[in-house]
Computed example of a mutant assay.
Amino acid sequence: MKTLKIIKIGGNIIDDDSALQQFLKAFATIEAPKILVHGGGKLATKLAQQMKVEVKMIDGRRITDADTLNIITMVYAGKINKTIVAQLQANSCNAIGFSGADGNTVVSDLRPSKPIDYGFAGDVKKVNTETLEILLNNTITPVFCAITHDRNGQLLNTNADTIASELAIGFATKYKTELYYCFEKKGVLEDVNNDDSVIQNINTKTYQPLIENGIIYEGMLPKLNNCFHAVNNQVQKVCIGKAQMLFQKDNKHTTITK
């Protein structure tokens, strides 16, 4: 069974043109099959301010009203996604950009309005792999933005970490799937003030004590919940750390396994 790498990058790479170019040049050298998932970075917020559309956030999550959905569709599925695809082509990596609506690949339900109404936010319901398998079998790399659809014509803003996790789960019966979350830290830290205090291995037994002892909290909890959702659904392993973990064998990062 082949190994499929699903790699998610966030704003720390997207917001820095030089870092993005450097990452994509290295990503292009990773042996196929592979899928790239990207977040939105700060560009959507910047464009909203220029267009005088109020940016509303609750607990770090964007409230997606109709105007905001228009902006993030332009930015995520347009500017960012197509820039990444074009740069991959420049590095001899044949890529195609995707939202969840393209090829009916990722279907979501509108998130319930209680206790908090996030507007046009989607929770992933189903991943359809058929179209993506054709591409992967022909060494074409799908590049996903953080937008899905509900099969009734409605686009939905969807967490990119969740899309990456659900894609990995969706392919787990067809490939040995590995999920990589690239972000600004070296990994999950034992001490948030010490960038070198990386917890190199976490499994289902050691995870709960880390929460109970207050080592893992707030912003890391949703990311790690996605990680364990993946490893509990046949994903081989999940790695969290800086993008260098993909290219440097001795790079310190966090690996999550069952």
Results as ranks from 00 to 15, higher is better:
Ala26Thr: 13
Cys182Val: 11
Thr177Glu: 03
Lys52Arg: 14
Lys223Glu: 09
Thr177Val: 06
Asn152Thr: 15
Thr139Phe: 05
Thr73Lys: 09
Ser197Asn: 06
Phe144Asn: 06
Thr3Gln: 14
Ile163Met: 04
Ala121Ile: 09
Asn226Arg: 05
Asp15Trp: 07
Ile147Tyr: 06
Gly97Met: 01
Ile216Ser: 05
Arg111Ile: 06
Val238His: 10
Lys125Ile: 11
Thr3Leu: 03
Leu224His: 04
Leu155Lys: 13
Thr3His: 03
Gln50Ala: 13
Thr255Lys: 08
Ala28Met: 03
Glu190Trp: 07
Phe228Tyr: 03
Lys125Pro: 01
Ala95Ser: 15
Ile6Gly: 07
Asn194Ser: 07
Asn225Val: 11
Gly100Cys: 01
Glu31Asp: 13
Thr131Glu: 05
Gln49Asn: 14
Leu24His: 06
Glu54Gly: 12
Ile140Ser: 08
Gly40Ala: 12
Phe23Gly: 01
Gly187Gln: 06
Asn70Cys: 07
Lys174Arg: 10
Lys185His: 10
Ala121Trp: 10
Leu110Tyr: 07
Asn201Met: 08
Gly97Asn: 02
Ala121Phe: 09
Lys242Arg: 15
Lys174Ser: 14
Asn226Gly: 10
Thr3Arg: 12
Ile9Gln: 04
Lys79Arg: 12
Gly214Ala: 03
Lys186Arg: 15
Val238Met: 02
Tyr76Gly: 06
Asn104Tyr: 10
Leu110Asn: 07
Met220Phe: 01
Glu218Leu: 14
Gly11Asp: 00
